[in-house]
């Protein structure tokens, strides 16, 4: 199974609020081949973000095993997970999540600094990434000086700048109008097709999910559908 980039075995996630335990994910089994464009759908509270956080190594599963590029990462320390996030995973969030105090170019450079890449090289790599997402002349602008669509492109540039092999996008179009949403989706699709980056997308809009080839549907913390078929309206 050389081609499998992500393999989940019986993943479970439990949240504790006060004395109450809540099972946000139950017995998740999932194989994602390298270069796939997968969308995760489901009702609000079905566990999409929870799954995404585990896949993105932001959080550790309560049970089960997670193999990322063949390596069991479910028991790694937070520092080892930080290194994986830095080198393997890029994030695109609903709220863009750019650091307001840093300029556009500095935001894109951020993962490179934590990777220990020198200032000159980092700057060059960031500029290349910025070109890929078609934003020009905004290098030294600050996030609040550019549009939401542009901010999300900057976030995509930040996600791919360190040559991540996976992009985790949690409702990346949630804060954008439909024109800009499709624009962003085209960028993600292009990144998937041209650079072979595996993309995992969380959305609850079918037309957004239709950019992907494979659709996974969650309900109450379980995968109820995982197919390559065309979407049936929910």
């Amino acid at each position: 199974m050389d081609n499998t980039i992500i393999k989940l075995e019986n993943i479970g996630m439990v949240y504790k609020t006060g004395d109450v335990y809540y099972e946000a994910l139950k017995d998740i089994n999932l194989d994602i081949p390298k270069g796939e464009f997968v969308s995760i759908m489901g009702a609000s509270g079905s566990g999409k973000s929870t799954l995404m956080n585990i896949l993105g190594c932001l959080d550790k599963p309560a049970s089960g095993r997670y193999y990322l590029e063949g390596r069991d990462v479910s028991k790694l320390s937070m520092n080892e997970l930080a290194d994986i996030r830095n080198k393997t995973i890029g994030f695109v969030f609903q709220g863009f999540n750019l650091i307001q105090r840093l300029s556009v170019i500095e935001n894109i450079e951020l993962p490179l600094y934590y990777a220990g890449i020198g200032q000159e090289e980092a700057k060059q790599m960031a500029e290349e990434a910025l070109e890929l997402v078609d934003v020009t002349g905004k290098n030294s602008s600050f996030p609040n000086q550019i549009s939401g669509g542009e901010q999300q492109r900057i976030a995509i540039a930040r996600a791919i700048v360190n040559n991540a092999s996976i992009i985790m996008a949690d409702e990346p179009t949630g804060n954008l109008d439909s024109v800009r949403s499709h624009d962003i989706m085209n960028f993600l699709k292009k990144t998937n097709e041209e650079r072979g980056v595996t993309i995992i997308l969380v959305t609850h809009e079918t037309d957004i999910a239709s950019y992907s080839k494979r659709h996974i549907t969650l309900k109450d913390g379980r995968i109820i559908k995982s197919d390559l078929e065309a979407l049936t309206s929910q």
């Binding site: 937070m78 930080a82 996030r85 994030f91 999540n97 650091i99 951020l110 993962p111 990777a115 360190n162």
Partner: peptide
């Protein structure tokens, strides 16, 4: 806090 979260997401360790 949010900035710290973002920095951690892109690879900052506790030490960083």
């Amino acid at each position: 806090t949010k900035e710290i979260g973002i920095r951690m997401a892109v690879g900052a360790t506790k030490k960083d």
